[in-house]
């Protein structure tokens, strides 16, 4: 479904991505793990068109989307839930969800999807008229994911959904991610919490200083000694 080949990115003089390779198959959860600064977020941002690639190729549903404008990529069914949530702070919960459905015009179905999101995150329903900046960290993360779902993506990119959340909340979020996947959305997940990520993923990639250094089925990776030593605290 998504194929990334030999992806390179330069920031100023820094060579941030040095040939990333990865593939995501339909229906999968794929985890991208690695240390801070390894290039995980940059990889997602380049796929979704926020960052320009200086070389390589990104292919989504058989089409070349390398360096295509973000808004066109979203329309093809690829939606990113960015790191740090990036919800619209001055808008209400409902307005944020509506922004997620920006590319759609079917107002009846948008309403239906909104109710689906509320089913998934009952807490958002309670706070639907609240301004987003007044939500707690966990609720903001839920809103960010809910907003991402509103575009009805075929592939959802999740960037560090566990960041800054209490352990209990992290579990809740991951359960929901799994549920979303079971409802048919393919997921590419960037996580610093490698354990958690590999526990729900089908396949995993390990990034190190801008390169894919290791990949394999999630369970194998989780059992790999190197990975355990570096990322799982083993």
């Amino acid at each position: 479904m998504l194929r990334v080949e030999d992806l390179h990115v330069h920031y100023g003089g820094i060579h941030a991505l040095k040939g990333i390779e990865l593939a995501v198959g339909e229906g999968q959860i794929v985890a991208l793990i690695g240390a801070n600064g390894a290039g995980k977020s940059t990889t997602l941002n380049t796929i979704s068109g926020l960052v320009r690639a200086s070389g390589g190729r990104v292919e989504f549903l058989g089409k070349d989307i390398t360096n295509a404008p973000s808004h066109e990529i979203v329309r093809m069914g690829l939606c990113q839930v960015p790191e740090g949530r990036k919800i619209f702070p001055e808008m209400t919960v409902i307005e944020n969800l509506l922004m997620g459905a920006y590319i759609r015009n079917d107002s009846e179905e948008i309403k239906a999807d909104r109710d689906l999101v509320f089913d998934l995150f009952p807490r958002l329903k309670e706070r639907q008229h609240q301004v987003a900046s007044t939500l707690s960290g966990g609720e903001q993360q839920m809103l960010a994911i809910g907003r991402g779902l509103m575009s009805r993506p075929k592939l959802l990119l999740l960037d560090e959904p566990s960041m800054g959340l209490a352990p209990l909340l992290v579990k809740e979020i991951f359960n929901i991610v799994k549920a979303i996947n079971q409802q048919g959305t393919t997921i590419l997940l960037v996580e610093q919490n490698a354990n958690m990520a590999l526990s729900i993923a089908d396949y995993g990639y390990v990034l190190e200083t801008g390169r894919t250094v290791l990949h394999g089925p999630a369970q194998e990776l989780a059992a790999n000694e190197e990975v355990k030593a570096a990322y799982l605290g083993g």
């Binding site: 352990p167 490698a194 354990n195 958690m196 059992a223 355990k228 799982l232 605290g233 083993g234």
Partner: peptide
């Protein structure tokens, strides 16, 4: 490394 709270919150259960 041995503390259960740390393992739960951060290090994660040792797989294997």
């Amino acid at each position: 490394k041995r503390n259960p709270r740390v393992i739960e919150a951060y290090l994660g259960e040792e797989a294997g």
